[in-house]
Nucleic acid binder design. Structure first.
Length: 555
DNA sequence: ATTAGGG
DNA sequence: CCCTAAT
């Protein structure tokens, strides 16, 4: 990261480099290559699905020629992304594509690390990105990007990109998360390894080691988790393209499979799915914490303070805390009227949390000797991105879905950085483009009513985002689409400049969906507007919206 | 337990 | 996002 310039340069030349690298690597990875090929040839699940789905572009083909097997794969992916929006109009297409890209871009940083989890998506993305850029922006000035890597100067960037507005928009979103292009470079070798989605391969070639090293290099930041999420995201995105094809399953299976193969993956898995083990650990922690707290409280004179806090544990607080424990205690506590037990626990933990916060301020490490440190870390992490970052490396355990992939970073920042004023923080995560897309896809699949399902399937990785959230977001999207689509061109520009640049492609999709699955109540206004939009099921939409929505859901 | 609707 | 009412 430090030497951005060189990296950037490299990146720019990446396509060329890629080839070179590949060649050089090939000898080393011969086995791998073979394996990969084998996989490709073989009708493996993952592979098949992907292969079947994707068509190769001319460009892609070229790519193929130049590059090795791995390349092939990637190319395919790229195609896929392109194919994503078959339904939408061309414009939409472009937009969508870009959007997808954007969504992925953040991943780029971490992609390298994680191909293990979902090698497929990751690697592909990277390559994809690469290819795409090469195609579209031969000159591509990364410099600006690099300079603003931290910032979301998406707009500024956009012009640079072959003048596709959409791109700009998408980028802006993703750009929030610093786009460390340089990383790509690092990744390349890893990719070369073509761990791809075949964990087995990786293990063979010893990719793992490499990956690890990389991680270290990258730093304390826990990339793994994000990656995982990303993975999911990516897969989802991809899936979205092929929803009709039922690829979902494939993807899912993919997820499941991948983890098992490599140790590395396994870690991820832990975070990803609330594994029983993890839960157990957490519980333990809680218990301990309780004890500790008690004693410590008693001993310390802070008792009064504690009491105060105790007395008024805001729901929010509890929720937040429980958020962490949500997986542990799952289900029960969610409702505000939680049973006394849970509540108590939550309160206590919260209390602790408060104390901790204070403690931190005062720098009073009382719990450390007992291993309180470990405890602390988790909570801090839990609190939110900013804090967690530092501890992340240490307490990876805690970081579960919560620290979401790409979004986590920006969101966390946006959320609130006040560690100390823990109470004040409001938990709200900005919706990233990828999330929105996911949501839209989900709606398109399941219909409007089934938020739980959507949540389960598409947002399983993100602990936050309750079904209600999804619904709300959808509502908002509808509104947005209405207003925006209503007044097309003129406002568009404005919209772009707006803080939340929602890709019009997405909006279009939303509007489409809205026409298909009218949202209760809102549909009236919407219908009139959305009429102009292509609606696959026009007649139904007007007639009986309710039934439609229900009907749309083919369980 | 989920969803819809409103704040 | 949060909360409440309705199913």
């Amino acid at each position: 990261m430090e030497q951005e310039a060189p990296f950037l340069k490299k990146y720019v030349n990446m396509k060329f480099q890629k080839v070179k690298v590949n060649e050089s690597f090939i000898p080393t990875l011969e086995d791998e290559a073979i394996e990969v090929e084998h996989l490709l040839a073989e009708p493996k699940n993952d592979h098949v699905s992907v292969d079947g789905v994707f068509h190769f572009d001319e460009n892609l083909e070229k790519c193929l020629e130049m590059e090795d097997n791995p390349c092939r794969f990637e190319c395919g992916l790229k195609t896929n992304s392109g194919g994503l929006d078959s339904n939408t109009t061309q414009e939409g297409d472009d937009n969508l594509k870009f959007g997808v890209f954007n969504g992925m871009m953040p991943e780029v940083d971490e992609v390298g690390n994680l191909h293990s989890t979902n090698g497929l998506s990751t690697a592909c993305e990277d390559y994809l990105l690469d290819v795409e850029f090469a195609e579209k922006v031969p000159d591509l000035d990364y410099i600006p990007r690099g300079g603003s890597s931290l910032e979301t100067s998406s707009e500024s960037h956009s012009p640079g990109f072959s003048g596709s507005d959409n791109t700009a928009v998408g980028i802006s979103e993703s750009s929030t998360a610093s786009i460390p292009v340089p990383e790509c470079q690092n990744d390349i070798p890893d990719k070369k390894t073509t761990c791809e989605f075949h964990g087995a391969l990786r293990s063979k070639c010893g990719c793992q080691a490499r990956v690890k090293g990389k991680m270290q290099l990258n730093g304390p930041t826990s990339l793994e988790v994000p990656n995982l999420d990303k993975l999911e995201n990516a897969s989802n995105l991809v899936a979205s393209g092929m929803f009709s094809n039922d690829n979902e399953k494939d993807i899912i299976s993919n997820h499941g499979l991948t983890p098992g193969r490599t140790s590395f993956t396994s870690t991820n898995v832990q975070y990803n799915e609330a594994s029983p083990v993890r839960q157990g650990v957490k519980r333990k922690r809680f218990g301990r914490r309780d004890v500790l707290t008690k004693s410590s409280v008693e001993a310390s004179k802070v008792g009064t303070l504690t009491q105060k806090r105790l007395r008024k544990p805001t729901k929010r607080y509890i929720e937040e805390v429980s958020d962490l424990s949500s997986k542990c205690i799952k289900g029960k506590r969610k409702s505000s009227t939680t049973p006394s037990k849970d509540k108590l626990l939550g309160v206590r933990s919260r209390n602790e949390h408060h104390q901790m916060g204070f403690r931190r301020l005062k720098s009073v490490p009382r719990e450390e000797p007992f291993g309180g440190a470990s405890i602390q870390a988790p909570f801090g992490l839990r609190v939110r991105g900013g804090v967690s970052k530092n501890h992340a490396s240490l307490s990876r355990l805690d970081s579960d879905e919560e620290s979401s992939p790409e979004e986590s970073e920006d969101d966390s920042e946006t959320t609130i950085r006040s560690e100390k004023g823990v109470d004040r923080r409001k938990h709200q995560r900005l919706w990233t483009l990828s999330e929105v897309i996911k949501l839209v896809d989900g709606v398109s699949h399941y219909g409007v009513g089934r938020w739980t399902d959507i949540k389960r399937l598409l947002f399983s990785s993100s602990a936050y985002r309750t079904p209600v959230d999804l619904r709300d977001k959808w509502r908002n999207l509808l509104r947005a689409s209405c207003t925006q689509l209503q007044s097309d061109g003129e406002d568009e520009q404005k919209r772009k400049h707006a803080s939340r640049p929602l890709p019009i492609a997405v909006l279009h999709r939303v509007s489409e969906l809205s026409s298909i699955y009218p949202y209760p109540r809102e549909r009236n206004s919407k219908l009139s507007r959305s009429g102009h939009v292509t609606s696959p099921i026009p007649s139904t939409s007007k007639g009986t919206p309710f039934s439609l929505s229900r009907r749309a859901i083919p369980r």
